[in-house]
Structure formats: structure tokens, C-alpha cells
Design a protein around this nucleic acid. Sequence first.
DNA 1: CGGCATTTATTTTTT
DNA 2: ATAAATGCCG
Length: 779
Amino acid sequence: MNDWEEYSAIEAAAAIPLSQQAMGVGNTSYLDGLNPAQLAAVETLDGPVLMLAGAGTGKTKALTTRIVHLLRTGRVRPNEILAVTFTNKAAREMKERVATHLGDAASGMRWMGTFHSLCVKILRRHAELVGLKSNFTILDTDDQIRLLKQLIRADNIDEKRWPARMLAGLIDHWKNRAWTPDQVSAGEDGFDGRGAKYYAQYQARLKTLNAADFGDLLLHVVTIFQNHPDVLEKYQHWFRYIMVDEYQDTNVAQYLGLRLLAQGHRNICCVGDDDQSIYGWRGAEVGNILRFEKDFDNATVIRLEQNYRSTPHILGAASGVIAGNADRLGKTLWTAREDGEKVRLINHRDGEEEARWMGDEIESYQRGTRGLDPYGLDSIAILVRASHQMRAFEDRFLTIGLPYRVIGGPRFYERMEIRDALAYFRVAVSADDALAFERIVNTPKRGIGEKAQQIINQVARNNDVSLFEGARIVARDGGISARARNALGALIEGFDRWRVALQDQDQSHVEVAQIILEESGYTDMWQKDKSPDAAGRLENLKELIKALEEFENLEGFLEHISLIMENDSQDDAQKVTIMTLHGAKGLEFPVVFLPGWEDGLFPSQRSMDESGQRGLEEERRLAYVGITRAEEICTISFTSSRRIFGQWQSAIPSRFVDEIPPKHVEILSAPGVYGGSIAQEPSAIEERVARADAYNSPGWKRMRARQEARTAKTRSAMKDVIDAKVVASFGLGDRVHHAKYGFGAVVGVEGDKLSIVFEGGGAKKVMASFITMADDVSS
DNA sequence: CGGCATTTATTTTTT
DNA sequence: ATAAATGCCG
């Protein structure tokens, strides 16, 4: 169907010829301003190159300059460079930066993009080699789950024991390692053989639907390269130079594909930082970058170690932490900058207090106190380990009216209303998109419930027609309730009408899209919805319609949208950024706050439980990423107790805190933190905690030891301990905690009852067994 | 079929 | 604590 020769001809024609003059051969001014390491990375063009680029060392600059250099020296045409990134954002940025040097030539770089988009491009050309048609649809995670659910249900298996999500994760895991179903069943599966079976069924089903999921995009391309040497060879010749960004994040499938492509000329340049590999949990293999020199003989390794971002103290702190990892290629970041503030460390009573303090702190930065220039809110970020930490900050900032922006969370195209709308468009464009049809057949509610849908499914299968045509038959012949039948008939009629409208030259696809959403009753559904977020959803739908304008037709839009799951709506107002550490990779801020450095939260307990030492090392890299985001001021904080899943947990400082070299740290004491409303004078405990003013001092060590011992005790048999000597353990003035009433101070002891004045207001008599010391676990 | 009650599981996230 | 997902009843 897609003859290679013809294709090559098209590609060649598309290449914008670069006349020597236009390219300015001989003019190498673009090399000015590179440091020696960057220059080496730019000028070492042939053979395998590993560019180890530490945080803030000008990686993107080196990478884009290298591309400019390749093109300017005239050794390659723009479309013969394969340049791969992980995100659309990175691809766009690179393209823009090349364009500032080369103008139009950058648009000739047709093979610069994300792994996924480039694989789609290749796969559309050779789809038949893996049993697909070139117009295959790309499933998102939602579709994937629904499909798997159907398979599990069809098997009459307990859906609880076999959650579709888990199976999806498993299949994803296999695809990340480029395992096809037969390779899985041949090996181990870990799920009594069922996983492999479902995997095979799932792949078969995808083939029938002429669809591929995200993992397939990579896997299929690797399969094609492996099974069709002739095809591989053409691409090996076509891509004369290969560049890979964020190499530490590649998974096995990506690695295999790259290695196959590079086998001939070996002109592959991988850029990355093993210390910033933080996506192991989704299939990234740090091993890929660690092994580079073994994979590619005679590789040139270039280290970018001069940091242009942070102060020496921040770099020192980060280096100290990351030094705790064993599996590293090793780099030593240095900076020409001098002085700067030490990394600041502070302890708080709980998460709310932490948020309160940071809010105040940010406001003082904003005003420019302590002799510093005022910082705009845009230059301040709070980076958390887990997104549930964000809530405390949002709450606090809302009450003090501090503008903030949360990065992350559900992306625009992942929102329910957007997916629903897209499903309508998908059915309108191609009637046999069964998954899309299933999604919207009863959205808004049309009275076409599960049972009716089953009947439609059955009729479609019996007549060997698409789901949509099956629905048409059901609507005509009946078999479901009259009400449902009418609704179904109306829906089908609607789609018939909309399809005609889409063909109509006089009607723009934007208009038709709007008509679809209105006539189907979808916008109506949200207008009638009285939930608080309905208005926002309607706004989103409007935005979606607006986005359509940039495309020729609906088809073009849908093709793009499946791969671009980003929403980068910009917002000019000055706001504090709140995001996860993962989301912050690649970004930088003058002022960075790193809250929640407590063992269990960060490093995450789960990470350590599931992946042991490897998990801990990844968490440590995350700490490294966090610290190195800061340009001037980095503040780390931890709390003494935190509410997790509604339960108060006492916390000990993260082990990473101890790993920061003391000479780079300044301990802050939080003013007013311990002066609770009741305790006019701080209790002995409070005083001791407050005075733990040097974490390398004996006081600090004592506090840690105490907390550790207490936690250990709690985890074993705290309950028994409390019951046994409950009364004896409380004295007048003790700061205590009750699960329902919160914190308070003991004002009286009578037998096994304690009189307590609670901070939340009021004195109460409570059984001692319901009380714990304030910085212990309470329940 | 739809609405309300109960249950259940809660890191990180791109394509 | 809380949200999402499931289960039960009208």
C-alpha cells in the first residue's frame, strides 16, 4: 500500500535543500558562548556519543546547537536527522530553538518529535506488517480499560480479583519491555497464566478494531524492525544521525528500537542524566544509560558539569544527597557563582502549620523583606512528593488570598467532558469506532442501559456488522424497551445527519462539531447539571471547539489529539507554582520550597516496599531533582506529625535530610509554631523540639532517636502499651492529641479520665485510652 | 434504570 | 478524610 520508493521520493522532495549560502557555511558564530564540554558535545558528530548533562548545565543548548552544527556543516539534510524527545513540549522547544538559528530549515526536520509521534508516522507506513490498516485508531487509557473490562467480564471472572486497571498496568509493563504475548506466555507471567492469556486476547481484539494503544506504537515498530530487515535497513539509511533526549527515561522497547536503527552508521547521540532518572515506575530503565558504553563500543562520553543555575550551597546539598546512590556514572557539578544562601531546613508541627508558614514566607519574599529584592510569585515554586500534599497549600493560600497555580492533575484532553465530546466526533467521523460509540451511547442518559447495550452488541455480532449498524438494526427492529428504542433511533438519525453536514462544503467542521454537541443533548446535560464544576466543563467544551479552528477538518484534529495530551493554556498572572517533583523535572525557579521531607512520605514507603534499594535510589534522585530546581533559595521542611488517610501519624525527618552536608544547611526555627492557643508557656517537649536548632547537634540526635524509638514502639504494640500504663503516662500540662477533638493540653487527671483543654475549643473529660501524646500516633 | 448507601483504596504520569 | 466505585432498592 505504501511503496517505499515512492515514499522516499516524497520524503526527499520534502527536504528543504540547504544552499551553502543560506546555511552560512563557514560562519560558526553559533558556537560562541559554549563551554569546552558543550563544544565537544556539539562537534563530536560521528559515532556513538553519550552526553551526560547534569542539572542546569545547558543541555538543551548543547543539543540544539549540535543539530544546527550538523545542518550548517552541510553533512545532512534536515529530514535525515532523527531527534527524539519524550514530551511534545520538549520537541516544540527544540524545534523553536533550532529555528532561531536556521529559520525555515527547522521546519524540514520532519523526524523531530516524541517517541510516540514518530512511531505513529512509521507505523502508518507499515501497518499491514503487524496486521493493522494504516488508518488505525489510537486508544487512550480509558478505552484500554473499557476493552479489558469487557474481556474480563466475558470470562465470567471475579472483576474484583482481576481489576482491569491492574491488567492494563501489567500489559503496559510487558509492552514497555517489548514483550509480545507469545514471549510472555513463554516466560513467567506471575498471574497464574491468566495475564498472558488476556494479553493475547486483548491484542487480538485491538487488531479487529484496527486500533493500537500507546504501548503498541512502540512495540509494533520494534516488531517490524526485528522481523523485516529490509524495512529496518531503509530507515537505518534514512536516519543518518540520531539524537535522543532524556535517555535515562527510555524503556526497553525504545532502547531496542534505537539500537536497531543505529546499528549501521552508529551515529547516535544520547543525552541524559542518570541522576535524574525518576520514571522507573513506568518502565524507564536507568540501565539503558548506565550501559551505554557497553552497548556502543568506542563511545565518546562527554560530561556537562558546569552548572549555570544554582548557588554553590544548593549544588553542594544536591551533590551530597545524590552521592548516597551506588549506581551512578558519576558527575561533579560545579559553578562559577559565589556565595548565596544555604539550604534552609525547618521543622513544623503538622502539614497545616507547614502550609501556613510557607504562605507567610512567600508573602515576605514577595514584599522583599530581609534585604532581598522582591520576588515575583512566578519565581516561587512548591514541589511536593505526592499530589495529596498540595491540598494543605491550596487551602491555606485560598484563605490568605495568595495566587497559586497547580500544575498537573487531569490534563485537558483527559477530562471526562472532553473525552465524551471527542467520542461523539469519533463516531461522526468513523461510524465503526465501537469504543467511542459505547462511550456516548448513553451519555447523556438516554435510557439505553447495560442490558440494551448488550442486545445491541449481540445483534451487531450476529449480523457481522459494526456496533453502530447493529444499533441501527435494533432501533429499527426492536428488542429493547420502546423508550430506549426511540432514543437510540434519534441518536442514529442524528449521526446520519451530522455525517452529511460534515461533507457539506458550506458548513465548517467547527460549526458541525458544535451542532453535534448541542443536538445530541450533551451540552444540555451539563447545563442542567447543578454540580459546581458543570460551568467549568462547559467552558472546557467551548475551548475544545475553539481548538478545532486550527485544523482543516475533524479527522485531522482527532489524529493530532490522540497524541497530544497536553494543556498548556498560559496564564500571565503572577502565581506561586505548586506541583509534584516529577512534574518539575526540567524546570527551574529562583525560590523553591520542598515540604514533606519525612520518612515514608519522602522517600515514599511504597516505593521502598515495592522496589527496595532500587526504589530508594530513585527517591533519592527525586530529592536531587527537587534541590537542583532551585536557583537561589531552597527551603526544605518536615513535620512532626501528619494526617495520612485521615489518621494522624507521627513522622521522623527524611533520611535525605541527614544526607545533606551540614555545611550547606541553615536550620530555621519556626516562630510562633509552638505557641498554641492553650499553652501559654511551651511545654517541655515543645521547648525541646523548638530548640533542636542544629540537626547535627546532640539535641537533634536526641530528638531523632526519641522519635524513632517511639515510632518503632508504636508500630509494634503501641495499643497494648497505652492500655497498660495509660494513666501513668500523662501528666499535667502534657500536650496531647485526640482523634476527634484534635490537640489539647492536660489540665487534670482523675483515675483513668483526663481533663483536657482542646485547641479547637472547650474542656472535656476523656478516657485516657483515647488520648495519645501529641507527637505520637493517635487514632 | 437511576439514585442513594455502602464499601474501598488511596505516589509519582507521558504518550 | 475523601473520593470514586460498587451494590441495593424503589
